[in-house]
Amino acid sequence: MSIETSLKEAMAIDGAIGVAVVDYESGMSLGTLGGGQGLDLEVAAAGNTEVVRAKTRTLATLGLNDTVEDILITLGRQYHIIRPLASSSGSLFLYLALDRVRGNLALARHALKRIGNGLEV
Rank of each mutant, 00 (worst) to 15 (best):
A45I: 03
R53E: 05
G36M: 02
K55Y: 04
L30Q: 12
A46G: 08
V52A: 11
V43K: 10
N48I: 00
N48K: 04
E42A: 09
R57Y: 03
A45S: 15
A44R: 06
L33H: 05
G31C: 10
V51C: 02
A45D: 11
D40A: 12
G34F: 10
G35N: 09
G35I: 05
Q37L: 13
M28H: 11
A46W: 04
L39D: 06
T49L: 06
E42N: 14
G36T: 09
G27S: 03
V52K: 01
L59N: 07
A45W: 09
L59T: 01
V43M: 12
T49R: 04
T49H: 02
R57F: 04
G47K: 03
L59H: 01
L41W: 01
A54K: 13
Q37A: 14
L30D: 05
R53I: 08
N48Y: 11
S29D: 15
L59S: 06
M28C: 03
T56P: 01
G31R: 04
D40I: 08
T32L: 08
A60M: 04
L39S: 06
L59M: 12
S29C: 04
M28P: 00
G47N: 13
S29E: 13
L39Y: 12
V43S: 07
L33T: 02
A54Q: 04
E50R: 10
L59Q: 06
V52S: 02
T56Q: 06
T32V: 15
A44T: 06
E50N: 10
K55N: 11
G36Q: 13
L41I: 11
L41E: 01
V51Q: 08
D40Y: 10
G34E: 05
D40L: 09
E42M: 07
A45C: 03
A54E: 02
G34A: 09
G47A: 15
L33V: 02
V43I: 15
V43P: 00
E42V: 10
G38Q: 14
G34W: 09
S29Q: 10
T49V: 03
L30W: 10
E42G: 07
L33N: 01
E50Y: 13
T49M: 14
E42F: 13
R57I: 07
A44W: 02
T56N: 04
A46R: 13
K55M: 02
V43R: 09
S29F: 06
T61C: 04
Q37C: 01
G31I: 09
G34R: 07
G36W: 07
E50W: 02
A46C: 10
G47R: 09
V51M: 05
V51F: 03
V51K: 00
R57T: 08
V51G: 03
D40F: 14
K55C: 02
T61M: 11
L41G: 07
G38Y: 05
E50P: 00
A60V: 02
V43F: 01
E50F: 12
A46Y: 07
A44V: 12
E50H: 06
E42P: 00
Q37R: 11
A44G: 00
V51T: 15
T49A: 03
G27W: 11
N48M: 14
V52F: 06
A54L: 12
T58Y: 08
G47L: 14
G31F: 12
G34L: 08
G36R: 10
A46S: 15
L33G: 01
A60F: 01
L39V: 15
G35K: 11
M28A: 10
G34V: 07
T61A: 15
V51S: 14
